[in-house]
Design a protein around this nucleic acid. Structure first.
Lengths: 210, 210
DNA sequence: CCCGATTGGATAGCTGTACTATCCAAGGTA
DNA sequence: TACCTTGGATAGTACAGCTATCCAATCGGG
């Protein structure tokens, strides 16, 4: 298809698509003549991916470039591909292999989980725990163990749905799956809070049956 | 304390603190003379809260203003206070009470959860589900039920830790608790993925045999 | 084969956010 | 008295993420 149709399919303005092309988020179409290029379904899908990552996951353009780069050309193994993807997910914190992450270390040891200080997620956990502490809501043992058990169960669900190993699709799944289900899980927790609050405290939905 | 000490305690530059004062995120100090004001511990805590919300939760300044406004002057009941707070949490989506949220409705009915279409979190869930679908990772029944069970358990942990009802502290807890534990849960899930991936696929923390 | 429309490519401009810097005058301080 | 701090106001900066315009080379319907 040509540019005009790609615009119609994606619903995006020309200037924006050109911007994504310039930024290397979208591969150029196959050139067919000096002033015309051909685009395919993969371009439509890529534009949907860009929109999902920017608008829903909240990724800046540079982060989107990293993610789509990893999908197109993964690292040697899926483990480090996933690691590099996680580094750019908000709230982005650069991991320092020699860094000290006292809260994260204590928490992960407490729940007996394997970790490497080079994981970006360790730095992210440290920041989150420090932030909770700084606003007067430090994470207690009870909450930590409860969270850990249920989060591990959720992660197992995620892994169980992973498509057949060693396909390029599996890389895409593990990278995108971590990112795109996060806002869904956040929304579900917010709804669960409101559900529980309305039952406990009385509210709009409390008069419904269950 | 005076401005200079507040700056030392918070580690922020003068211009930034003045900016937060202008934007109404930080209450002015008690005036003690025409060119001098007195600040207290609550100002130090408030600055820590602002930094946590902007840097870790990722809230824009306008959202921080809403949250601190709700903590200082909550709505009539905690249920609607929490609802208003959730509206500004990223990814912010304005709820339309007459809107149609087909994916969210189907999902919530499937798991038998109470909801009101006016909840911002319903719109947020809809967007998340639509985004997952648009990148080729639609949420299946199995995953939905699994997520729902464990998310509900996590929400129950949150509610169980709620301080004595009807204290101003309880409002602060429910508003901040929803927001500040979100990045922690996200980081824990990312770590759980890496933990499971390293065991299954071989990686830094495990042997490479499979 | 002609002429208006489309395209790719380049460059410049715009909008919003979150600060950051400067200036000033009043007032405190040594 | 001379200097420093403070509060208050205003202007400027840096960056992200688009958005708009221009141009020349086609393309393609009549």
């Amino acid at each position: 298809m040509r540019m005009s149709e790609l615009l119609k399919r994606s619903g995006m303005p020309l200037a924006t698509v050109k911007y994504y092309l310039r930024e290397g988020l979208l591969a150029p179409g196959e050139k067919v003549g000096a002033t015309m290029a051909d685009y395919g379904e993969e371009h439509v899908r890529r534009l949907a991916l860009i929109r999902a990552l920017t608008e829903v996951v909240g990724l800046p353009i540079a982060g989107v470039r990293t993610i789509v780069g990893l999908i197109d050309e993964p690292e040697a193994d899926r483990f480090s591909t996933l690691g590099r993807a996680i580094e750019v997910l908000p709230p982005a914190v650069e991991a320092d292999p020699d860094g000290d992450y006292p809260r994260a270390r204590a928490a992960l040891e407490e729940i007996g989980q394997l970790y490497d200080p080079g994981y970006a997620a360790v730095a992210q956990l440290e920041r989150g725990l420090a932030a909770a502490e700084s606003v007067g809501l430090p994470m207690g043992r009870e909450r930590l163990h409860g969270y850990a058990r249920h989060i591990m169960a959720i992660a197992e669900i995620d892994l169980a749905q992973l498509p057949g190993a060693d396909t390029p699709r599996a890389v895409e799944y593990s990278v995108l799956g971590t990112a795109v289900y996060e806002p869904i899980l956040a929304a579900m927790r917010r709804l669960a809070h409101q559900d529980l609050a309305s039952r406990m405290l009385g509210g709009v939905a409390a008069d419904r049956d269950r």
